[in-house]
Amino acid sequence: MSTVFIALQTNEDTRPIIEAIAHDNPQAVVHRQPAMVKIDAPNRLVIRRESIEERLGREYDLQELQINLITLSGHVDEDEDAFTLTWNS
């Protein structure tokens, strides 16, 4: 098992995104550090557009993640609906 992670800036834009990630990935652990939030998960983490849109109340383009992204770990696969991080191990 390897840990994949994503870290986002702590701000109003990312609050609903973090909520959505925590909801969609029950195994994920959310670490709140100064000015940033790091979310770890075993082997796989998925970020879903629909879950974010539900919380945001507007349309959301997953590429908007770029603006508040700090770092990540794992192989990235992105399409219109989901942004997925995985390790093969």
Binding site: A35, Q66, L69, I70, T71, L72, H75, V76
Partner: peptide, 19 residues
Amino acid sequence: VTFGFSAQSDEARHMTLGL
């Protein structure tokens, strides 16, 4: 903090490209 995180948001993309 601002320039660091602003730069790092690009680095996340660079790391992914590097990999």
